[in-house]
Design a protein around this nucleic acid. Sequence first.
DNA 1: GGAGGATATGAAGGATTCTTCAGCTTGAGG
DNA 2: CCTCAAGCTGAAGAATCCTTCATATCCTCC
Lengths: 221, 221
Amino acid sequence: MDAVVPTHLNARKRPRQARAAVTLDAIFEATIQLLLSDGPERLTTTRVAERAGVSVGTMYQYFPHKQALIYALNGRYLDKVAQDVEAVCRAQHGAPVAEMVDALVGAYWKAKTARSDVTRALYRSAVELDTESLIESFGRRVDAATSAMFESAADARFADLAIVNTTVLTAIFGTVRSAFERNLQAPLMCGVHKQLVVMCLAYLEAVRLPATADMRAGAQT
Amino acid sequence: MDAVVPTHLNARKRPRQARAAVTLDAIFEATIQLLLSDGPERLTTTRVAERAGVSVGTMYQYFPHKQALIYALNGRYLDKVAQDVEAVCRAQHGAPVAEMVDALVGAYWKAKTARSDVTRALYRSAVELDTESLIESFGRRVDAATSAMFESAADARFADLAIVNTTVLTAIFGTVRSAFERNLQAPLMCGVHKQLVVMCLAYLEAVRLPATADMRAGAQT
DNA sequence: GGAGGATATGAAGGATTCTTCAGCTTGAGG
DNA sequence: CCTCAAGCTGAAGAATCCTTCATATCCTCC
């Protein structure tokens, strides 16, 4: 997530001692908790500090202002999700499309549901500020990873991979988000997850090019 | 959207004279514009009033507080979208699945892109408050409409329509939202739209039950 | 034309919030 | 043990913001 970070959102300084790192974590955790319990509207610097068990001034030693805090929180999170996705893409390089999709959706879903509270809190916080740069950066990163993966598929080729890839990603991101937003109950949630895999697969099957000779021969590149 | 409206969000009074209606529209419009230009963070009652060319007190004659204003704005909008979708569902009653999907996605996409600025503004504002009741209500309404539509399909039946329907809707809602959020350029945007139809169709094709005798005979109910 | 309700005004009160800074505490290295 | 940088504190200033209400203006209908 180290791309085009609006300068005014830079962190103020990095922790050098152990206790500072602890403090920083406490601040992040407090932010998440407050975001969850009271919503972004009531997220104030004072409350964050209080919840984190530190003083307001302490927070201002690490962040120039409130927005920078939220920005950093989102960056941290998106970075982790992106890493997970990238790992999956590497692992599935050269695999059949079916496995790719299953793994991709699974990874993204897992990353989002692992701490669904955090996910929800961040979905809410993100609106407060210019997260576009973060999202865009995240999008590009994942785009590249999945693109490379699909390109290496053992059993399929696509005419216009760019649009196909974007579509699949947009659908996955969106469906997950939408599912969260509609607050679907566990069983429905789980059902939608499985159906999402089916849907992506059906789509890719529909738009793939007819098999070529080398693919039928089982070539891996 | 007339379901479980949190009482504290009720409008204060309805306009009875023509000029009052004009004022109200101006307030709504001003809210949208400010949401767009400055984001929800900087949406203040004073600014809304100023932009609308009225006094702050005027707004407080129609809304008990700021939240009620945003709530009403969202309600208004979702209601319109729901109406559009319901109309399409009625029109496509008994049609082939392919046409249904095309019409459904088209209608939703159109409703969202007709004034994409407004859509974006509301996507941003909605997080500020308890819009869950609105979204849930909207979801149920659309769910019912599309469910009834798909059930009447001339050329397909589904084993578990509930989950299939939810999946399709979640995917459509989400994909549209995601496309907006990622701020895709026009061509990509258009591409995703078309691909979304392909995707939904491919999915429905994959999960439909094998054709029955009466369907092959062309029965419509 | 005039009475009374519907609308509109906008200064001011009350409540928060963000951010700073001068001074204090803690920890690490010599 | 001592020194100095790193880390922490929290009262207070400055800036908004939300909301009210007493007052003024506009419509409508008799």
